[in-house]
Simulated scan of single mutants.
Amino acid sequence: MLKTLKDLFDAVAPRRDAPARQDVHTLQLACAALLVEVMRSEPGISPAERASVLATLRTQFGLADDELERLVELAERTVAGASDLFGFTSAINDAWDMEQKIAIVEAMWRVAYADGTLGAHEQHLLWRIADLLHVPHGAYVHAKRRAREAAGVVHKT
């Protein structure tokens, strides 16, 4: 019986190199899910928003085009079935330092501005995500400004 239990545990226990690979995949999915959530936050997904998501993931993770498409498709399915954002943000909080978290917030702002407009839902969602990532308000505002300027969107006073 002990041998049988040991065999069972060995069968379900991850291999030694699996956690590192799994952590990378979890982080990639978490990042993609947040970007996709911003992309989906307003009705109608523009090609520019999708291109911004793909460009961010390509730069961040160095994935090939087919891997990017699969990751975004998985992120879309995952986000559709998620009840909150905490699982995604906690994976990022566990793995990334503040500089990296600010960079992903800026990337999310670039997705939001990619179509030339910023909707109320996008703005609220970005505020929630930045809060869950523990990004200081000043860094959040500067990330937004940099993304807005990069998109060429004129700020209304």
Rank of each mutant, 00 (worst) to 15 (best):
M1W: 11
M1E: 14
M1Y: 13
L2P: 07
K3A: 12
K3C: 12
L5T: 07
F9D: 05
A11G: 14
P14K: 03
P14V: 03
R15M: 09
R15G: 09
P19M: 04
P19A: 02
A20R: 10
Q22W: 08
Q22Y: 13
D23K: 10
V24Q: 06
V24E: 12
H25Q: 13
Q28D: 00
L29F: 04
A33E: 02
L34G: 00
L35K: 00
V36N: 01
V36M: 04
E37Y: 10
E37R: 10
V38P: 14
R40D: 11
S41D: 09
G44K: 06
P47V: 12
P47R: 12
A48T: 07
A48Q: 12
E49S: 08
A51N: 13
V53N: 02
L57M: 05
L57E: 07
R58S: 09
R58C: 04
Q60P: 14
Q60R: 15
Q60F: 11
F61G: 05
G62E: 11
D66I: 10
D66E: 14
E67I: 06
E67P: 03
E67F: 10
E67M: 04
E67C: 04
E69N: 10
E69A: 12
V72R: 07
V72M: 03
L74N: 13
L74A: 10
A75H: 01
A75G: 02
E76S: 05
V79Q: 01
G81C: 06
A82F: 01
A82L: 07
S83L: 13
S83Q: 12
D84V: 05
D84L: 02
L85C: 04
F86V: 01
F86Q: 09
T89M: 12
A91W: 00
I92S: 00
I92H: 06
I92V: 02
I92W: 06
N93A: 03
N93K: 08
N93G: 00
N93C: 02
A95M: 02
A95K: 03
A95R: 00
W96R: 06
D97W: 07
E99R: 15
E99L: 13
E99C: 10
E99M: 13
Q100P: 13
K101Y: 05
I102R: 13
A103W: 14
A103I: 08
V105Q: 02
E106S: 03
A107K: 06
M108G: 09
W109S: 05
W109P: 01
W109V: 03
R110P: 07
R110T: 07
V111N: 09
V111H: 04
Y113E: 08
D115V: 03
G116A: 04
L118I: 01
L118A: 01
A120F: 10
A120G: 10
A120T: 11
H121P: 15
H121F: 15
E122C: 03
L125D: 05
L125G: 08
R128K: 15
R128Q: 15
A130F: 06
A130P: 07
A130H: 01
D131N: 15
L132P: 08
H134R: 13
P136N: 07
H137V: 12
A139T: 03
Y140F: 15
Y140T: 09
H142L: 12
A143I: 02
K144R: 14
K144L: 10
R145H: 13
A147D: 09
R148N: 01
E149N: 15
A150D: 06
G152A: 02
G152T: 06
